[in-house]
Design a protein around this nucleic acid. Structure first.
Lengths: 207, 207, 207, 207
DNA sequence: ACAGCCGGGACGACCCGTTCGT
DNA sequence: ACGAACGGGTCGTCCCGGCTGT
């Protein structure tokens, strides 16, 4: 029992170090040696817990998914209005990004992997789906404009969130992420146009 | 003379191949061999033109910057209103992403951090600066709300553009990028709230 | 006491698994993990009984030697003529090879050189010595030709036996080994030449 | 051209070193580092010529096959009687074993099973086939007994040759191989029994 | 006494970015 | 401009100890 506790601790240490390393340098840019030095463990210890680099990356992603799942359920349980729920979720996710190395690592792994691999990462799809549902409910409840396309808007929200997170990371290492989410929602909700004005754009994408 | 022409052609071939490869697999994920096979040249030829991997990456980024510079000047020369100019620019950039491998490669190289030690990539700063200026002009001209913070909004626009581009790439390999830009501007300008409604959020980022 | 019985069982299981593994893949080609998985024991259990790979290999060889010793004494006790004894021995050895994994493993470990620096394995020397003695007795008893060189012939017999075993293993996994021993003795005793003919070769090896 | 000569030389050096190393310690017992140190080349050079350990081993085997093929054709061209041809061949092969490291390495690689999945190495089959044909012709020509089974005898000859080679290697490092071939043929042709005597054994392998 | 879990490093094959002689 | 060579780095495996529990 006492022995197993050490194993659990080692595993956690490695996982955290891996998250940090993957977040900082990406999957191919991170060597096992990087991780093992950062975690302060030996190769033997590392490979006892994770038998390959790929498996370690998968574990980091899993950890992230679990963490995201946790706060998502927590927020949904609060039974707020759809739009408020969505906004609240985004802030909680942002906080997790700031606090949890595994989440940061998982995000980079998920994005980067999705960049050169076929399907859309599981997590991203779930995320978009949830956002889309909340936006649909918000529209039906009159919280957002009836003209809005929930799916398209959901994908934009997720994309903008991702982009903001990247920019924030590069600028301040995620320190100003919350302020950027403030801006995001302010613009997304009210729009940039002066009060009372709207534009009907001719879409270029309709070809 | 004839010799030089071949050299120029070889250089271009390599540059394009490198852009494609970097876009697909990132800097550390791409090997010189990958590029040299994709370009169909020998090691000697490659290293004659670019004496290191880093230099090759820099050349790709330079190529992208030149391309972006070109269309930016072109659009600015049209002398439209600030907001229209900004919107137009975003579409032209999107088209370049779709068409030019070097641009795609340059973007990934610029975004992916940890490989080089850039505090903030040159191009991104210029991009944000330009957007910020146009938004400031747009506000002064009454094209957008007087309440808007041009700098914050500029960073959001750039972030959202980047995020949309990533999502588009993963979903359709950039095929639906233009449509996503449609959505972006539609939401950014009009907002999601029902007509006539606005919210004054209490910013969390103000701590 | 009850405890010790389990220990004996474990030891035997490991020994058998090791014999099988060494026979199949040789000493350097076999990993401790291979053996321990094949035996269904843990690392701790294995290393309690055999504190190193080398010691385990030695135990396998010892097991083989004991087995060979057993049948050898049994056959010698039958008090047959020297030649008949030798032939009988070869068949009994062949049967052991077919039946006992430790014997197979021991043979491969003994033959395969380079792993340890044995000038000539103990067992082989004993084997040749015994064969040589029996052939000498057979010659003195008129069972074989007076011209025969017992030592040279003994080494040939051992070599041919070894070679036949290898060929049999590769062809049928030892299934047809007995038939090959039939052939061996048929040719060794009668020779290939037509009845009544002999040749006197000029030896090339006499230099 | 001149450049290629160096490459050819390097390749040959590596091949010879690999043959020696494989012959001495077997495939799994030989590390690439062993070979590269023995050959006096760098890792880069080695992997330029042979892109994997397995490929290197295959090249050694190929080299051996070519060498054997060469002397085989040479001897066959001499148009001697079948039995004389076979005997001559065995001596020539023995000489090659003594002289050519690649041949020694190839033999060990071919014999040692478990490393690759070859059920029966090509070369061995050809060897047995050729021996069988020559023995058949010898029987038809009355050179050997009409009772002999050419195929069984051929497999025995090949097995005995292999076994003798192993014994010779372990005892003297192949130095006395020729003398052992003398013994082999003396016994194989005349048999061990006293002149004029034959035995009809009851085969055990007939089940 | 006997076995299991966890960890320690040295070493394995192989690849990488790069240079050199021609 | 090219084929050949260089050597450090990559991920992963190996054999093996030290604890801990029964």
């Amino acid at each position: 029992m006492a022995m197993q506790e050490r194993a659990v601790r080692t595993r956690g240490t490695v996982l955290r170090a891996a998250g940090e390393a993957f977040a900082a340098k990406g999957y191919p840019g991170t060597s096992m040696t990087d991780i093992l030095v950062l975690a302060g463990v030996t190769k033997g210890a590392l490979y006892f817990h994770f038998s390959s680099k790929e498996e370690l990356a998968a574990a980091v992603v899993g950890e992230q998914q679990a963490a995201v799942q946790r706060v998502t359920e927590e927020v949904l349980a609060q039974q707020r209005t759809p739009l408020t729920t969505l906004v609240e979720l985004s802030y909680r996710w942002a906080e997790q990004i700031q606090q949890d190395a595994a989440v940061r690592g998982g995000i980079r792994l998920t994005i980067e992997q999705g960049t050169f691999e076929q399907p859309m990462p599981e997590l991203y799809l779930q995320w978009i789906e949830l956002t889309s549902q909340l936006l649909t409910q918000a529209r039906d409840a009159g919280e957002i404009s009836a003209d809005a396309d929930p799916t398209a808007a959901a994908e934009l929200v997720v994309g903008a969130f991702t982009g903001s997170q990247i920019v924030s990371q590069v600028f301040t290492g995620h320190a100003d992420l919350i302020r950027r989410i403030d801006t995001l929602w302010s613009v997304f909700l009210n729009g940039l146009l002066p009060e009372g004005r709207t534009v009907m754009m001719l879409p270029r994408g309709a070809r």
